[in-house]
Every structure is written in structure tokens, then in C-alpha cells.
């Protein structure tokens, strides 16, 4: 979204439903990412539990930061 803060605020206020749908999509994406990383950890922990857990932690970190980033730039 481009423009000054006031322009962006007026655009959001003009299409509030769309803005809320965007927030909903961000939350769904975050939950899906958490589920994906947990499923990969469960699948691969038999190979190496420590590396599987480490990968899940990095993945969850990414999911959280990505959700925050998408909320911040919208």
C-alpha cells in the first residue's frame, strides 16, 4: 500500500471489510505455518530429534516474524 499515513488510513477506512479479510488471511497463514513446521518435526524427529527440534524452532521464529511483518506493512 503506497501513499502517506493519512491516505493509507482513509483507504483502509473506505474498505474496512477487505482490511479485516487481510488480517484473517495473515492469521490463517500463521496457523498453517505452525502446523506445517510441527508436522515436519514429528515426521523427521525419528531421524534426528535435536535437529528436528532446532528446525521447528527456526520455522516458528520465521512464522511469527512473517506474521508481524505482514501486519506491520499493511
Amino acid at each position: 500500500m503506497s501513499g502517506t499515513f493519512a491516505e493509507k488510513a482513509s483507504m483502509i477506512a473506505a474498505s474496512e471489510r477487505l482490511y479485516r479479510v487481510g488480517l484473517f488471511v495473515v492469521v490463517i497463514g500463521f496457523l498453517n505455518a505452525v502446523l506445517l513446521y510441527f508436522a515436519l518435526h514429528v515426521t523427521l524427529k525419528r531421524v534426528n530429534n535435536f535437529l528436528g527440534q532446532l528446525a521447528m524452532i527456526f520455522g516458528l521464529l520465521d512464522a511469527g516474524l512473517a506474521a508481524w511483518y505482514r501486519c506491520a506493512v499493511s
Binding site: 521447528m56 520455522g59 521464529l61 520465521d62 512473517a66 506491520a72
Partner: peptide, 29 residues
């Protein structure tokens, strides 16, 4: 916005390391 830009970079690195480990485990298994 500037904080979010840096955050996106850190998140991207975390994503890359996570997938590197997952694909390494897939490769091993």
C-alpha cells in the same frame, strides 16, 4: 516500516535455516 524491513530479513534467514535442516534430515533419511 523500517523495523519491519529488518524483521523480514531476520525471518528470511530463520526460514532458510529451518528448511536447510529439514531438507538435510530428508536427505539423510
Amino acid at each position: 516500516r523500517s523495523i519491519a524491513g529488518a524483521t523480514e530479513n531476520v525471518g528470511g534467514i530463520a526460514f532458510g535455516i529451518a528448511l536447510l535442516l529439514f531438507f538435510f534430515l530428508f536427505f539423510k533419511s
